[in-house]
Design a protein around this nucleic acid. Structure first.
Lengths: 154, 154
DNA sequence: TACTGATAGTCAGCATACTGAGCAATATCC
DNA sequence: GGATATTGCTCAGTATGCTGACTATCAGTA
């Protein structure tokens, strides 16, 4: 019988499980309380000031129903702000706060360290091969999840 | 600034996200209502009759607090049984039911199809390379998550 | 045997993710 | 311009996954 461990789906789950654990450990050791999901959202808000929630969700491939809670928590921690848009009264414009900027800056070494640790079993070449193959598989499957990656509008 | 999409952690999350979506779509189209997590648990119970929950958790790298709910749902669907062990009154022995066996058999083509689809952007060689590299990274990081993979006792 | 530590399982609480539904506002089309 | 479709967001419900705590039981030892 085919072992679970030979299935790409199982390996995907396991790698993600380790990646999250490593991220939380490194960031926690650095004295911060931020999840991988919250970090990606905050970094993307900083890089795209004033973007709305749907655009943010598209840029990091989150479901729109998930992003609501993520932003709730960023706002509650004082790292981001959510205000009504005047162009489109359905939309919310997102901004990073000074506190959010400070947190991002201070947390960066821990985040980079985490990325290294989750690849620590691989050589540099193997690591970049893995990234390239994941990229390629993800690009081909982008439309298969409810929350595909979307480029920002010009 | 470094893009989220260049971080292994983000790629891990995205690949897993697509893998789950593909699995649910294929299995759903085949007329079954089983998650990837439930499938792996059921297949492992079938392969190791009478095992206890902690052993099952170790074999598929689930947290022991997660497995409780997963088994609850397998039992509720009539696919598995949970009964008290006589050797150790703390433990529960798990068995697959006939219904569970039938379901596993009928669901297998959809599961295999899902594994192919999530690698559809890759050549055969690229697919096996990806699996090998994931394996290696996971092996090196096994102890970093709260729910590491464990071999069954002899 | 009494004590100590470890183990099996569960539970409460929190954070992703998703399905599906709904509301309000905007776009589109005739 | 008015009906229709679409879009932005939220909510309820379900399923992982985790932290941390707790109970019951078992194992080892003094």
């Amino acid at each position: 019988m085919k072992d679970n461990n030979d299935m790409p789906g199982h390996l995907a789950r396991r790698f993600q499980q380790i990646a999250v654990a490593v991220f939380l450990a490194e960031v926690g050791d650095a004295g911060f309380d931020l999840t991988p999901v919250q970090y990606a959202a905050l970094a993307t808000i900083k890089a795209n000031p004033g973007l709305d929630q749907v655009t943010l969700a598209g840029l990091i491939a989150y479901d729109r129903t998930t992003i609501t809670g993520v932003i709730d928590r960023l706002v509650q921690k004082g790292l981001a702000e959510r205000r009504a848009s005047r162009r489109d009264r359905r939309a919310r414009e997102l901004e990073i706060t000074d506190e959010g900027r400070r947190t991002l800056r201070k947390i960066t070494p821990a985040v980079e360290s985490a990325q290294r640790i989750m690849l620590r079993g691989l050589s540099a070449k193997e690591g970049s091969d893995l990234m390239r193959l994941l990229h390629k598989a993800i690009a081909a499957g982008n439309e298969l999840s409810r929350a595909p990656l979307r480029q920002a509008q010009a």
